[in-house]
Amino acid sequence: MKLGTLILISMAAASLSSLLGAHEREDGHASTTNGRLESTAERAENPSVAPGLVSWHANRQAASAASARSGRPVLVFQLLGRLDEELC
């Protein structure tokens, strides 16, 4: 196999890997149940949207740590689906 072909295959693999890893969000939000990997292709059918105008902590632990500093209580908003998807 030629070197150029190998490079192209590697690049394609890296792209697919990043797509499959797309659900590992920087903000840390993830489903708490089945841990199923969702490809960006699947998620594209349910477009991403901004989760309102609220500035959300990444998880309960971060919110609790902020609460200990600020004195404000923690608000945990639970839902079926994702708040940052159009269909939720």
């Binding site: 609220v54 609460s67 404000r72 908003f77 839902l79």
Partner: peptide
């Protein structure tokens, strides 16, 4: 949460976070 006044109210009174309990049926 998309309403500016409501979002401001949440920011002033809480440390908010959201989480999904499972996929929503579509």
């Amino acid at each position: 949460f998309s309403h500016p006044d409501f979002a401001r109210f949440v920011a002033e009174h809480f440390e908010p976070t959201w989480e999904s309990v499972r996929d929503v049926p579509q």
